[in-house]
Design a protein around this nucleic acid. Structure first.
Length: 363
DNA sequence: GGGCCTTTGAAGAGA
DNA sequence: TCTCTTCAAAGGCCC
């Protein structure tokens, strides 16, 4: 794991990453036993990738059939084969690689960028900004595997409520009275009431994770009449659409965001399914150090997200909640049993539901 | 217009 | 603790 490589300087939680890297560490131990070098490790990965391509998994076969049925690209498969034969190792070996190339990527998270605008990825690279670039200070600095001093429990959650880092202000200069100042009694408040009209966090910091309710999910929140009362549904439709807080991107997603344009340029592919297959192989072909950059960024992304939306849960964006027309903050989802964005006794939930409806009525 | 495909990783819930 | 499910991005394709 990258943190381990820094001499154990990272005590920042991210257990998931630790597990992932632990696996690689075990792999490395085996490699070391066989007197492998780091280069050999990369070769090993590449060979494994190639082997996986040769020995198509049942899944891959199924996908292939699906692809044929759906017209999924024989030509794309050719592209895939072609790309797989290319040297993957060149990605980070370009002279101009600044360390965090995707810091220059466009940003769907930018306040003025819409999800649709985000789709012009090829030409955005030189003008856009990384989601974190406006908030994180690392710019073009060399990657430091040793993360800043942050509480060890940053990535942990007690229930839905998250711990808030005091040190994140180093990353995101939260103004006094920012989200960290929100009292616990306010933490259950719906984001729509907290965020205001334009994806702007109360802190004044626009965050990428907030997207206008124009995506897939929000419309699904309003099209399930069979589970909700028509009156409620009608009322809901009249209400202004609430912004959706998206999940923070993981390491691979950040990698894809950066490399997608390059793959598209290299193989003239546009279908994301095919591109993602290529990117998946390249991801496995990356060295530990290369992957560590993205794990580190993803960790920071999660921290930022956690800091800005302490009460947010990944469950909030589950389609089931939207499908059944449930309030993300207060309603209990019977069909799938997922919980609202608060951990309270159901009776408290009912009280909050009533109070929230009173509030919305008064508004 | 909306869902599917395709990838990896994170998070949450249930067994 | 392990397994399963869902979502995050992307854009072409299909119904």
């Amino acid at each position: 794991m990258p943190q381990l490589s820094s001499g154990g300087g990272d005590d920042l939680g991210a257990n998931d990453e630790m597990i992932a890297f632990k696996d690689e560490g075990e792999q490395e131990e085996k490699i070391q036993e066989n007197a492998f070098t780091e280069r050999d490790l990369a070769d090993l990965k590449s060979s494994l990738v190639n082997e996986s391509e040769i020995n198509q998994s049942p899944n891959a076969v199924r996908r292939g059939h699906q692809g044929e049925q759906r017209g999924f690209p024989e030509k794309h498969r050719e592209h895939l084969d072609g790309v797989s034969k290319q040297q993957d190792g060149g990605m980070y070996k370009t002279p101009g690689y600044p360390g965090y190339p995707f810091l220059m990527l466009p940003d769907p998270y930018l306040p003025n960028s819409s999800p649709s605008s985000n789709k012009v990825s090829v030409v955005q690279q030189s003008h856009g900004m990384h989601p974190l670039s406006s908030l994180l200070p690392y710019g073009n600095e060399h990657f430091s595997p040793s993360p800043p001093h942050l509480p060890t429990d940053m990535s942990q959650k007690t229930g839905v409520h998250r711990h808030q880092s005091q040190d994140l202000s180093g990353y995101y200069s939260l103004p006094p009275g920012g989200v960290s100042q929100i009292s616990p009694s306010m933490s259950w408040f719906p984001h729509s009431l907290m965020l205001g009209p334009s994806s702007m966090h109360p802190t004044g910091i626009p965050h990428p994770a907030i997207v206008p309710p124009t995506g897939k999910q929000e419309h699904e929140q309003y099209d399930r009449g069979m589970y909700a009362k028509p009156q409620v549904e009608a009322k809901r439709e009249k209400e202004p659409k609430k912004p959706v807080i998206k999940k923070p991107l993981n390491a691979f997603m950040l990698y894809m965001k950066e490399m997608r344009a390059k793959v598209i340029a290299e193989c003239t592919l546009k279908e994301s399914a095919a591109i993602n297959q290529i990117l998946g192989r390249r991801w496995h072909a990356l060295t530990r150090e290369e992957q560590a950059k993205y794990y580190e960024l993803a960790r920071k992304e999660r921290q930022l997200h956690m800091q800005l939306y302490p009460t947010w849960s990944a469950r909030d964006n589950y389609k089931c909640r939207a499908r059944f027309g449930l309030n993300q903050q207060t309603d209990w989802c019977g069909p799938c049993r997922c919980v609202p964005n608060i951990h309270l006794h159901p009776l408290h939930s009912i009280a909050l539901l009533l109070s929230s409806k009173l509030i919305s009525a008064s508004i």
